[in-house]
Design a protein around this nucleic acid. Sequence first.
RNA 1: GGCUGAAUGGCAGAAUGGCUAUGCAGCGGCCUGCAAAGCCGUGGAUGUCGGUUCGAUUCCGGCUUCAGCCUCCA
Length: 459
Amino acid sequence: MLTVYNSLTHEKEIFTPLIPNKIRMYVCGMTVYDYCHVGHARVMVVFDMITRYLRAIGYEVIYVRNITDIDDKIIQRAIENQEDMNQLTARFIQAMHEDADALGVMRPDHEPRATESIAEIIEIIQQLFHNGYAYQADNGDVYYAVNKFKDYGKLSGKKIDELRAGERVEVEQAKQDPLDFVLWKTAKPQEPAWDSPWGKGRPGWHIECSAMSTHCLGNHFDIHGGGQDLQFPHHENEIAQSEGATGEPFVNYWIHNGFVRVNEEKMSKSLGNFFTVREVLKAYPPEVLRYFILASHYRSPLNYSDQNLDTARQALTRLYTALRGLSATENLPEDNEYRQRFHQVMQDDFNTPEALAILFELAHEINKHRSTDFNQAQKLAGELRYLAAMLGLLQTDSENFLQGETEGLSAATIENMIQQRNAARTAKNWKESDRLRDELKAQGIVLEDGAQGTTWRKI
RNA sequence: GGCUGAAUGGCAGAAUGGCUAUGCAGCGGCCUGCAAAGCCGUGGAUGUCGGUUCGAUUCCGGCUUCAGCCUCCA
């Protein structure tokens, strides 16, 4: 039985899809005017984990994650760069895909782009006009009349009156109500624009998600996800738009992941305290970043620091060390205690920290058995890889992870030095053998003398 | 000011009305030429004040502190 925390009700709920065995999920993706930072990585990894897990337990999942490729910041950045807007977005879409691939994030089934969904956007705005939720102001912009939508605030727990009381936005004169938000923006000269019944312009931010999600998944679907910061106003507005246009319930389960923090402060573009994914990947293998993200529950804050990434690397090293020398192709054991517990914790709102703890217990068992009952160790290793796959972890070869790309010393050089050292050891020339070991250590290579000979790994 | 959420051992991070989280770090031992890895053992925690209870870190209330949203943000 799968339970999921629903932001709409603030409770863990038993998950029931609208269509048996089929899950339709939409996640708000990136605005592509810059490189992805760790906060974006968290969204990608978390919903990738969720998708993998849902598929692993037998659901057919249609996963949609949009790309926002038209918005104020993109236009502004293109001007700053003196770059064609489409060229700019194409560059960062490619960079995003590279980052996602590195992190083991599978591509969504659909990746709709705002600029390719203009027809759907216009259609839904027309529907909003028809239902009395939209109006065109004197300046030509089209707005959503928030006070027409009865349930406004149901996701974020905000009340319209309180929002008004706390109003501190500069009021756009054209709006009937300060809370109204734009559906269609009239184009200024030089700005990218599309034809519409309301003149040349471009879509507001919120409407694209309503248009793309319902277009890809239907008016009413199962899961809508994104970062916590989108809960208000973005997702609140999406509900108002979608339900206002279709007259149907929009989404059953809202899933929001927590923020990444730096020194107890939200990592964000506006604060400028962000680390891009590619920056982090210069210092750490991508799987370490993925592990780091999954080592906290998706709704908890995640504190970014080198120390925490170092710990993640050590933890992952322990798992890979347990798998070392054991083939992954062995037959899986029958259903067992570990697997049952793994599913139990994962089905409790995707508790990946608990799931990882179970993987460590497996690693421990493997280590205990490997010298006494190799066959059993082999089976447990198969189980470990099988369960880790549901999290998108431990999918590479142990040696690959432990030895990695050897910068500086080549594998051949290292092997050569190991041979020299072993010759010295045979001659009981400890001074020389220790010297060679220290020399390798200075290059970041650790030697381990085992029963089957000497192995090495990177620190 | 309004609304969310959080406070767990040296660090990270789960869980639970009474019972081992887990990883890293520490300590003792085994293994090793010495190490490393691994194994065995071990110390150490629930912000604060009340309440409910036989018993609360866990439930309820107050307080303090922190983060977030209320403006673009994953």
